[in-house]
C-alpha cells in the first residue's frame, strides 16, 4: 500500500510519537513510521545521532522523507544537516492529514515527487471548518 520511501518524523519533544499514535487509531494497519523526539536540552551530538539512527533504519534504497514540525526549529535544522550525506527530503509543518495520506498511498512515488505532493496535500487539508460544512455560512 505505502510508498517504499522511508518516513521519519522529527519534532520538538514527543509530538511525532503522538501523531503516530493518532494515526494508528485511525488506521491500525498503517505502516510503522519512525519518530524522533528532540529535547532541545539534549547535547547536539545526541540529537544528531538519534536522527541518524532512524534515518538508517528507514532507508530502503529509495530515500527517506523527513517530516518536521516547523521550519527553523531545532528538529528541522538538525534534519537539514543530513541533506548532503543522505538521500532525504525534508517537509516542514507536519499535520495528521499528511500522515493519513502517506499511510494510504496507492502507488509508489519517487522521493522528490512524494515530498512535493505531501506538502501540497498538507496545505490543501487546512480548512476553515464552517466552509466545509453543508448548510453552514458560505
Amino acid at each position: 500500500m505505502s510508498s517504499k520511501v522511508g518516513v521519519v518524523i522529527v519534532t520538538h519533544y514527543r509530538l511525532g510519537e503522538e501523531f503516530l499514535q493518532a494515526l494508528q487509531l485511525i488506521l491500525p494497519e498503517a505502516p510503522a513510521f519512525a519518530a524522533v523526539a528532540v529535547d532541545p536540552n539534549q547535547p547536539v551530538e545526541q540529537i544528531r545521532q538519534a536522527i541518524a539512527d532512524k534515518l538508517a533504519a528507514a532507508e530502503n534504497g529509495e530515500g527517506v522523507l523527513v517530516l518536521t514540525d516547523m521550519f527553523g526549529g531545532t528538529p528541522s535544522n538538525m534534519s537539514l544537516s543530513f541533506l548532503d550525506e543522505h538521500h532525504v527530503e525534508i517537509v516542514t509543518g507536519i499535520n495528521l492529514p499528511m500522515l493519513v495520506k502517506l499511510a494510504t498511498l496507492s502507488e509508489d512515488k519517487p522521493l522528490e515527487e512524494l515530498a512535493t505532493f505531501i506538502k501540497e496535500y498538507g496545505q490543501r487539508n487546512i480548512s476553515v471548518a464552517s466552509e466545509l460544512l453543508p448548510g453552514a455560512k458560505a
Binding site: I26, L27, P97, V100, K101, T104, S106, N125, L132, L133, P134, G135
Partner: peptide, 21 residues
Amino acid sequence: SREDNEEWVSGRSVLSILSLA
C-alpha cells in the same frame, strides 16, 4: 456522497470521507 449534495468523493481517501461531515 451526501444525499443533500451531488458531490461524490472517493471511498479510498480518509480525508475525502471526513470532508462529507
